[in-house]
Design a protein around this nucleic acid. Structure first.
Lengths: 205, 205
DNA sequence: TGCTTTTAGGACCATACGGTCCTAATTTAG
DNA sequence: CTAAATTAGGACCGTATGGTCCTAAAAGCA
């Protein structure tokens, strides 16, 4: 695995995070990675799509190491870890001044309809993400109410975070994300055993 | 306001909902609206962007009439209206088998970073949407706990729905959206006066 | 030394796109 | 009837894009 590959992947990741996949041309990547030309690029990747796939994989690995890692910290209370994780998502978004977000949500929204290859890969990413949250919820079982649906709750957490990141990108205002993160933490806390009353849902059916 | 304009806008809206704005070419719109050629199109719209802006406006007006309308029904209990609204979003997504979603979220994700003109218009759309939910929450004040933050809650609702729609598009599974909608309703219900205990938030700060 | 991989750089291509321009037929309104 | 608006249709243009092909200089390795 040559070093140049990483260089290309890094440059591509930065460009894609900034402008999206479609708006990032191969020539842009070549400039960003300071390659000599097209042939140089195609010496390492057989197509732009392949590049995109590898960038996506890489993003998830980084996210798993840096963001998701806290979910597995054995010395911290599980529900506390979940709060820390939510904070880390907020912090990540803050780094770009609210402009970027989870790279998965961006790609998902951009390509889910148009590009099946990406869609399935992004689906897998979300599944792996959800699975880690499910593990944590399983671990936190003793502190949670008996009827907590880990699958449903894990999906809700991810959806709320992705939606929050999207809204924040549109509004360019970190307060948006912070407020939603706050509410999300409250919602999770309400699944604890110490939350005595879970109000009845008013369904319209 | 000629009839042909509407025809073009309808065709464009359908195509954009299906493939996104960038992936919808002017020629596609021309075919979809059965125009004779480019000049015919540019007789009605001065650019593709202008077309996009008008489609966005139209989508919001429709959404306001069809989706948001229930929020203003004076004969129904406010919080019940909110649940009905959430159901309507689920139903809307179900119509396309989970493939499409709120057209705003799609456009937002696709263009918020790349196209400032769209970004500000989408921001306005979300603001108007949030404002309608805030009004409803204000109306529901007597039934809500005193410390409910209407601004924060309205944003949370929209973010959760947009995130849910996004995840559903990726997963192509309506169960995703239904589960999140269920949890969202529960979260709203927990702001009611009848919800006796609001658990303490575990913040990590 | 030789052979392979990497770097360099340019020419080229088919396709697609947004947009302009021009001419002429057809329809609509006053 | 006449002028204006609409419909029709095609030629064009500049630009960008993903991708291929080819040649040749360096670098790394046996």
């Amino acid at each position: 695995m040559p070093d140049r590959r990483s260089q290309i992947l890094d440059a591509a990741a930065a460009l894609i995070a900034e402008h999206g996949f479609t708006s990032t041309s191969v020539d842009d990547v070549i400039k960003g990675a300071k390659l000599s030309g097209k042939s140089h690029f195609y010496h390492y990747f057989k197509s732009k799509d392949e590049l995109g796939y590898e960038v996506l994989n890489r993003q998830f690995e980084r996210f798993s190491e840096r963001g998701l890692a806290v979910l597995r910290e054995p010395m911290i209370d599980p529900l506390e870890r979940l709060n820390l994780f939510i904070d880390s998502v907020v912090a990540l978004q803050a780094e770009s001044g609210g402009r970027r977000g989870s790279p998965f949500g961006n790609l998902a929204a951009e390509l889910a309809d148009a590009h099946e290859g990406f869609r399935v890969r992004i689906e897998a990413v979300f599944e792996r993400w959800a699975s880690q949250i499910r593990s944590l919820l399983w671990e936190a079982r003793p502190q949670l109410q008996d009827d907590v649906d880990a699958v449903r709750l894990s999906r809700f957490i991810i959806a709320a975070l992705e939606g929050a990141v999207l809204m924040t990108r549109v509004k360019r205002d970190m307060a948006m994300l912070e407020g939603i993160a706050f509410d999300l933490k409250r919602f999770i806390a309400m699944h604890g055993r110490d939350a005595l009353v879970v109000p009845v849902v008013r369904t319209s059916e």
